Amino acid sequence: MKTTKRLEAALIKLYNAYHNNRLNPEDCTACAVGNILDNHDSWKHLSDQHGSLKLSYVGRVHQNLGRKFNGYSPEEILQIEKLFLDSCGFKTPLCHYNPKPKNPTSNEVLFDGLCNVVELLCKLDGIPYILDYSKLFEQEDGEPVYHLETFLG
């Protein structure tokens, strides 16, 4: 499957962050967007509230100038972050009195968040969801439509 450079780069960063325990929804340098943007926190100024889709003045300026951050516009960055936080069980926009998950860095919570982020990243690039395995179970007349090759070694 052909992907875009920004999607491929984002997937590699998210994969490495997840497997190296460097993914944390409560740390703007280690959340989904923080990892996509090379563990910098300057992106947080694109919105006045963490987890909001509303661009701040700074965010609107960057958006109107057509600026991209590792290939993503300010609006796309806010979409990615909000989805990640929501998928991890946070109520957005974040506020100290809003409920949050009991264990926001558990592998299950992070995995759910990442799957939803990957689906959004694919949608933003017009690419079919790369984690969709449903085709593997399609049948026609009782026979699988698609076949997997196995390698024994």
Rank of each mutant, 00 (worst) to 15 (best):
K135D: 09
E140I: 11
N116G: 06
G126H: 02
L124C: 02
C115T: 14
G126F: 10
Y146T: 09
E108C: 04
I130G: 01
E108F: 13
L124F: 07
L120W: 02
D141W: 02
Y133A: 04
G142S: 01
Y146D: 04
S134W: 00
G142K: 06
I127H: 03
D132W: 03
L121D: 04
C122N: 07
L120S: 06
L136W: 01
Y133M: 06
D141K: 13
D132C: 02
V109C: 10
F111H: 14
I127L: 07
L131V: 03
D125E: 11
C115W: 11
G142L: 06
L114V: 15
E143T: 10
S106I: 15
C115Y: 12
Q139W: 09
E119C: 07
P144A: 09
I127D: 01
F111E: 15
E140F: 06
D132F: 09
D125F: 01
I127M: 10
C115V: 15
Y146H: 13
L110Y: 07
V118H: 10
K123L: 05
V118G: 10
L110P: 05
D125W: 02
L120H: 07
K123I: 05
K123T: 10
V117W: 10
L120I: 12
D112R: 15
P144V: 12
N107C: 13
Q139K: 14
K135C: 03
G113I: 10
S134V: 04
S106Y: 13
V145E: 08
I130R: 04
L136V: 00
G126L: 00
L110R: 03
P128W: 03
P144H: 12
F137N: 10
G113S: 12
N107I: 15
E108S: 15
D112C: 14
P144S: 15
S134H: 13
S134M: 09
V109T: 14
P128A: 01
E108H: 15
E143I: 05
L110D: 11
Y146P: 01
S106P: 04
L131H: 11
F137P: 01
E143S: 02
Y129A: 03
L110T: 07
F111P: 01
G126E: 06
V145A: 08
Y146M: 12
G113W: 06
E140R: 11
G142I: 02
D141I: 03
I130E: 01
C122F: 08
K123F: 08
K135T: 07
E119V: 04
F111V: 13
C122I: 04
S106M: 08
L120N: 02
V145Y: 11
E108K: 15
G113V: 05
Q139P: 07
N116A: 12
I127F: 02
P144G: 14
L110C: 08
E119L: 11
N116P: 00
D125M: 02
E108V: 14
L114P: 09
Q139G: 05
E140G: 00
V117L: 08
K135L: 04
L121E: 00
Y133V: 12
